[in-house]
Design a protein around this nucleic acid. Structure first.
Length: 427
RNA sequence: GGAGGAAUGGCAGAGCGGUUUAAUGCACCGGUCUUGAAAACCGACGUGGUGAAAGCCACCGGGGGUUCGAAUCCCUCUUCCUCCGCCA
């Protein structure tokens, strides 16, 4: 959620930024928000005056009663009763204004950073760092990962359909081991880079989902347990970042670095077709996430650091990748700048997104009330997060790119995690 | 699921209807003293709204109510603790 103060003080900058996202009626919305806030201030001030009067008179009543002047006290009591009616009306109006204000504020997405390119669709994203080497070229007999998965018994989509439904792959045998090995590899590397590991809940309440911005923006994207009003997390970002909701940090504690492995659940309503075959898009998948809470002056430096860290993971896995900077139109609702990592899937001959790294500036911390003690009072911290990494498409690329007649070779860093150097065909 | 108890500032812990502008202690911060440190002493010491400021207002787990006046009384929800039941 954007700060009211920003809308007032930097309206031009906000409008320029939101134009990159093609936000409709941005100026009208901002004007309405400021008008509502003016009303809020006026209403609250007049109500506070009534409250102050009530408090003063009530104190006098107390003194009169103590002094035994019951009749004078009773007269003042009647006066307070009149004031109380005004207070009740004022409070009702105030609450209504606040509700409208909140609702309007929630409709505005984050303001893109000046370096974010304008654009409408993913085709307008900036190739921030192209892949430097030669893309691997496979023989015509090369198979896509969903065919390899059957030959090598990596995962089984039919079993997932039986137990749950489409989009819930069941990893089997050496496939399950590969997934577990990757999770451990990622967690070990993240921990070595100074991130503290957490195992958060996979179900979150509404307040948590709102604080990081999944609600109300992505209402239909999350699985909702209506009986208990919990949401299944679409990413570990949600519980991990919310660990620091309503917290005031000492500046020396920054940056705070968190990592965690969780399954992620996404409804992906309306997605179907050839481009979602195999592991390309599923409803449940494993992901290791990194989160940082940063001083505002350091956040973009830290974003660079996170990009470098994730690039290092992909280098170690030997996967060809490129980095995109998302354009305004493709940028997530809550993000100010996002880099996407895409690995080359040699059999499908296409780029697959495996990580998204974002700086949210104060958009999340405003809702989270995540602050640090600054020079001039408490100030909102910046939040950042990124996938390090999401498993399914990593597995897809590893299977496809490394297929040989003798089996699927594994990158050296995984040998000790899996206890083998390659995957073998199974009957 | 059942019975009882509890929830107050970073922590501990008073307060049970009206000088509470939330006592006191510890921690933290500034200062005096000291060669330096400790001790001692002095001072500052929660969050938010509004305002140029003084000030005013709200917040004692959340919500609602009683009252001229609520941290304090009532209702309700949540969480934690103790015990019972069930259970991986």
């Amino acid at each position: 959620m954007l700060l009211l103060q920003t809308l007032r003080d930097e309206k031009d900058r906000v409008l320029t930024g939101l134009a990159k996202r093609q936000v409709a009626d941005a100026e009208a919305t901002i004007d309405r928000i400021i008008a509502l806030d003016d009303r809020r201030k006026a209403t609250q001030t007049s109500n506070d005056e009534k409250l102050a009067e009530r408090n003063t008179i009530s104190r006098q009543v107390g003194e009169l009663m103590k002094a035994g002047k019951r009749e004078e006290g009773a007269a003042l009591r009647d006066r307070v009763n009149e004031i109380k009616e005004g207070i009740a009306a004022g409070e009702a109006e105030l609450n209504q204004i606040k509700e409208e204000l909140e609702e309007a504020l929630l409709t505005l997405p984050n303001v893109p950073h000046p370096l974010v390119p304008a654009g409408v669709t993913e085709d307008d994203n900036e190739v921030f760092r192209p892949f430097a080497g030669e893309l691997p070229v496979l023989p015509d007999t090369a198979k896509p990962h969903w065919e390899l998965a059957e030959e090598y018994k990596i995962f089984d989509l039919e079993l997932g359909v039986k137990t749950t439904g489409a989009g819930f792959p069941v990893f089997t045998g050496q496939g399950a081991r590969l997934a577990r090995g990757l999770v451990n590899f990622f967690l070990d590397r993240n921990t070595a880079a100074g991130y503290t590991e957490f195992q958060p809940p996979l179900l979150v309440n509404e307040a948590t989902a709102r604080a990081t911005g999944q609600l109300p923006d992505k209402e239909g994207q999350m699985y909702h347990c209506t009986q208990d009003d919990f949401y299944l997390i679409p990413t570990a970002e949600v519980p991990l970042t919310n660990l620091y909701r309503d917290v005031i940090l000492d500046p020396e504690e920054l940056p705070i670095k968190l990592t965690g492995y969780t399954p992620c659940f996404r409804r992906e309503a309306g997605s179907y077709g050839a481009h979602v075959r195999g592991l390309n898009r599923v409803h449940q998948f494993d992901k290791v996430e990194v989160v940082q809470l940063a001083h505002p002056e350091k956040s973009y430096e830290i974003l660079d650091e996170m990009v470098a860290h994730i690039g290092g993971l992909l280098d170690e896995l030997g996967l060809p990748f490129r980095i995109l900077r998302l354009c305004g139109g493709d940028l997530g609702f809550t993000s100010a700048m996002t880099f996407d990592f895409e690995v080359w899937s040699a059999a499908q001959k296409r780029w697959l997104e495996v990580s998204s790294v974002s700086c949210f500036e104060t958009f999340q911390s405003n809702r989270l009330k995540l602050r640090y003690r600054g020079e001039n009072g408490n100030e909102l911290a910046h939040t950042l997060n990124g996938s390090a990494l999401a498993l399914p498409r990593i597995i897809a690329a590893l299977l496809e790119n490394n297929q040989t007649d003798e089996g699927i070779t594994l990158p050296e860093v995984l040998h000790s995690y899996l206890g083998m150097t390659k995957l073998e065909k199974k009957q």
